[in-house]
Nucleic acid binder design. Structure first.
Length: 446
DNA sequence: TGAAATGTTGGGGCG
DNA sequence: ACGCCCCAACATTTC
């Protein structure tokens, strides 16, 4: 029989509004799983409660001799797995964990000194040298049934959680995931290496939520890409991103404290603006709402709220602006992203934010500061990404769309944009903010 | 998986 | 023809 536990640790009904997009994706995926296995001779049993209590209880009720589960690698999932195993052992039930969240177990690779890697490039070399990614297992042809009367719950509806359905999210479930993979491989894949940074093009695979929830395993994606091509540039480039994902999971596995503390100790006392600082509050609100006056940043903020997804390049630019231009603690941005992202994953999200801030493992140096205008001009050259998410700027020509406050007044009036009324002036002057950050960082980081 | 400041070079306008 | 200057284009250094 197939059991899914709605554990309040990651799915508390009364707190589901804190992760509305992931709740939607998860429930859709559960429903799809339920429907997809109907012909296998059993069904999906959903129970609610703490895994450490309900799993042994279900095992007792059905007389199970063994329980199989995929391990979770982030700290609390890991602890949960440990406790469930302990509880089951007390009932003489075998507990077999298998890996699947990552392509190789997160502690697989070590440096010559036996230490966890701190730098991506050597990690990726070791991965290429030592890891043979196993092809995914075939789907089961049948599932053993279950006669016991179990205390199951129906798959919750979004409405019962007080969440409105968002039609703009990627659709959950394995079938939808496989279709996304197919569309990527048949479409933008072979231009991936040069289109992946283009915020205005559908150049990426959009599989992040599938990888997070397991509607597609990283191994499935790896194998599909491997069998599609050999030695091409797009393939190398894409597989490299999967190795980055692997690296991020490994980092958190070895250093659970990363969820609360920066990797680089020098950053622990970095003088970000206090959450109670009125200037900081204004900046924070503007960044969240998408009205900083930096079009790409505002586009990404609105895409996040509406689609639960942000293009990776836009994530990096927005993180750079929040931490460096606005001097706001990366952990607040990290939490905001985790709230809204459909692909919100503790390991990936944390690694991304620490990297962009410059406080992480193998992060970019603190003085590498993105210019939101020139980034926009480079990676959204026609301005279509901005036009899509910041419609009040849609009539501006590409020449000015990334710096509307600098546009000549006749251009602005022709486009129907009044700076300060229809669209804000930049909340900070980037050049000044950059200099200030460099000074602050130099002092704080030595 | 930066950007800005600074340095170098070379073409062309001009006295 | 020549030197001078300007500046674009590119390279290097710095943060």
């Amino acid at each position: 029989m197939l059991l899914f536990v709605l554990d309040p640790y990651f799915f508390a009904a009364e707190r589901a509004q804190e992760f509305p997009h992931r709740a939607q994706f998860l429930l859709e995926s559960l429903k799809a799983l339920h429907d997809n296995i109907a012909h296998l001779g059993s069904r999906l049993f959903v129970v609610a409660g703490r895994s450490v209590e309900v799993v042994p209880e279900v095992a007792r009720q059905v007389g199970a001799k063994r329980v199989l589960a995929q391990s979770w690698t982030e700290p609390f999932g890991r602890e949960r797995d440990r406790r469930v195993g302990e509880a089951l052992a007390g009932h003489d039930v075998a507990f077999e964990l298998f890996d699947g969240e990552t392509m190789a177990p997160p502690a697989s690779l070590r440096t010559g000194q036996g230490e966890p890697f701190r730098v991506f490039t050597p990690f990726s070399r070791a991965f290429a040298r030592e890891i043979r990614v196993a092809p995914p297992l075939p789907a089961p042809r049948a599932l053993p049934g279950c006669d016991a009367e179990l205390d199951t719950v129906p798959i919750p509806t979004l409405a019962s959680l007080g969440i409105a359905h968002n039609p703009r999210l990627v659709v959950g479930g394995e079938r939808a995931a496989r279709q996304r993979l197919r569309e990527f491989l048949d479409g933008p894949a072979d231009a991936y290496h040069h289109d992946r940074d283009r915020m205005d093009r559908p150049g990426t695979s959009r599989l992040s939520a599938d990888l997070k929830f397991g509607t597609l395993s990283a191994r499935s994606v790896w194998s599909a890409v491997q069998s599609k091509a050999t030695g091409t540039e797009w393939q190398r480039s894409y597989l490299n991103e999967l190795v980055w994902r692997e690296f991020s999971h490994a980092l958190l596995w070895d250093r659970p404290s990363l969820l609360t503390e920066p990797f680089r100790p020098a950053w622990q006392k970095f003088p970000f603006l206090s959450p109670t600082d009125p200037v900081g509050q204004r900046r924070w609100q503007a960044w969240c709402d998408g009205r900083t006056g930096f079009p790409v940043v505002d586009a990404s903020a609105r895409q996040l709220l509406q689609e639960g997804f942000v293009h990776n390049r836009a994530r990096m630019i927005s993180a750079s602006v929040l931490t460096k231009d606005l001097l706001i603690d990366y952990r607040r941005g990290e939490a905001h992203y985790l709230h809204w992202l459909v692909d919100g994953d503790w390991a990936q999200n944390n690694a991304g934010w620490q990297w962009a801030t410059g406080c992480g493992c193998d992060a970019q140096p603190y003085f590498r500061i993105f210019n939101p205008t020139s980034q926009g001009e480079r990676f959204d050259p026609d301005g279509d990404y901005v036009r899509r998410w910041v419609p009040e700027l849609a009539a501006l020509p590409a020449r000015w769309i990334h710096a509307p406050h600098n546009a000549p007044s006749d251009v602005l009036s022709k486009a129907g944009v009044r700076i300060g009324t229809d669209y804000p002036a930049p909340i900070v002057d980037h050049a000044e903010a950059r200099n200030l950050f460099l000074r602050v960082a130099k002092t704080a980081l030595g």
